[in-house]
Amino acid sequence: MVIDFDSFYNFPYEFDKIFSDVFNPHHQRRRKASYPPLNIVEDKNNIYVRAEVPGISIEDMEITITDKDLVLKGQRKLPEGRYFRQERPSGVFQRIVSINTTVDVAKVTASTKDGILNIVLPKSEASVPRKVGITVE
C-alpha cells in the first residue's frame, strides 16, 4: 500500500503549511479559483490567456472565440479503477473570458506544453498604438 503520512505525522510540515496559509493569501486563492486556473497577460501586441490543464490534450478542449468572449470548454476524464486517493479534479469545465479590446480573431492560436495551455490573441492593428513598431520575434 502507498500511504502518505505527511498530514498525520509530519508536524513540522503541518506547521509550515499553516504558516504559509496565513502569510500567503495567494495560496488560498488558488484553491478557490474556478477550474482551470487562468492567467491573463498582455504585452504590446498580444494578449495571452494561459491555463493550467494537466492531463488534458488539446483535442479534448474546445476553444471558441467571438469578438467579445473567449470560451474554453472541455472535459477531464480520469482512469477507472479502485481509488485509494483521489485529489485531482475531473468532469466538465467551462470558462469564459471577456475581451475588452479588439483582437484579430482570425489569427488566434493555441498550444499546450507540459499541461499549460497558451492562447495567443493578437491585438488588432487599430488597438495597437501607431508609434509602436511591430516587433520581430
Binding site: M1, V2, D4, H27, E52, V53, P54, G55, L78, P79, G81, R82, Y83, F84, R85, Q86, E87, R88, P89, D114, G115, I116
Partner: peptide
C-alpha cells in the same frame, strides 16, 4: 505546492497520477 495525486490499485500494482502543470 503539494501536487494533486490520484492513487489507483490494480492486481499488478499501484498507479499514481500527479498533476504537475508547467513542470
Amino acid at each position: 505546492f503539494s501536487p494533486a495525486t490520484d492513487i489507483v490499485e490494480s492486481e499488478q500494482g499501484f498507479y499514481m497520477y500527479m498533476d504537475l502543470p508547467g513542470v
